[in-house]
Design a protein around this nucleic acid. Structure first.
Length: 253
DNA sequence: AGGCCAATAT
DNA sequence: AATATTGGCC
């Protein structure tokens, strides 16, 4: 959200990763509109992410299973039926919860874990949920609740995460115009350094690559998890520190 | 036992 | 470039 719409300002934000603009004052419809875009993007991302394992396997034709799911009943006819059942390397339903979150990583065939944006989101959510001080591998692992994810892997990721954060924070006072509609853009307000674990959780704040649609691993700003869209509002899911899980909540405009 | 960090390996 | 591992140290 910007108060000025001159070219300079816009360029600046875009360079920082903004993909759309809201000029103050913001009308509800605009916000609502953007929200929907984000929601759809998220759904798209989920789908793509969940197929990652297959896409990388050289021998595999673009995951018939995944395609079958993406294209209900239609494309799936003759020979496809037989190959529907097996297929390793599939992100199966039991590896994802109702909220689209990863609950298990069993990337067999893959020697190394791929930190998808979704997995990274969960990581960030955990890190943010704990504090700067409490966010250590074991605890992070504890609340991420991803089976087969090891402490070492989290530690490794955390190390990288911190390194990137270190690089982007102390320098340049201006950083990370995140997605305008998240309204989490405290970055503008206080260029403080206590942003170590800010809510955006952007790892590549200094990575000025322009708005992109592809999913390079671990390199997307975290959005709130969006799940359901209805006319009255949007169902969202927020972390419940008591139950140690995500619970529904509603946004009304 | 864990965590942190830098170096190093894959 | 991203992730894993290791070794030194707290």
């Amino acid at each position: 959200m910007a108060s000025s719409g001159d070219t300079n300002t816009v360029m600046k934000y875009v360079a920082n990763g903004a993909f759309d603009f809201l000029l103050k004052p913001v009308r509800i419809e605009e916000l609502s509109n953007i929200w929907q875009h984000i929601f759809r993007k998220q759904m798209q991302d989920h789908k793509n992410n969940n197929m990652v394992g297959n896409l990388e396997k050289p021998g595999h034709p673009p995951s018939t299973l995944a395609m079958a799911r993406a294209t209900p009943a239609t494309t799936r006819s003759t020979a496809t039926e037989a190959s529907l059942a097996p297929l390793e390397n599939e992100v199966r339903d039991d590896m994802v919860n109702y909220n689209g979150e990863i609950t298990d990583i069993r990337d067999l065939g893959k020697s190394r874990l791929t930190w998808t944006t979704q997995l990274h989101r969960q990581f960030i959510a955990a890190v943010n949920h704990l504090g700067e001080d409490k966010a250590v591998p074991k605890k992070i692992l504890g609340i991420m609740k991803v089976k087969h994810l090891t402490r070492e892997q989290v530690a490794s990721h955390l190390q990288k995460y911190r390194m990137q954060l270190k690089k982007s924070i102390p320098t340049t006072s201006k950083q990370g115009a995140t997605l305008s509609s998240t309204a989490l853009d405290k970055t503008q307000d206080h260029p403080s350094r206590s942003q170590y674990f800010n809510q955006d959780g952007c790892m590549e704040i200094m990575d000025y690559s322009l708005p992109r649609d592809d999913l390079s691993s671990g390199s997307e700003c975290m959005l709130e998890e969006l799940n359901d869209y209805s006319s009255e509002g949007f169902q969202d899911f927020r972390w419940d520190s008591d139950k140690q899980e995500y619970g529904p909540c509603f946004w009304n405009f």
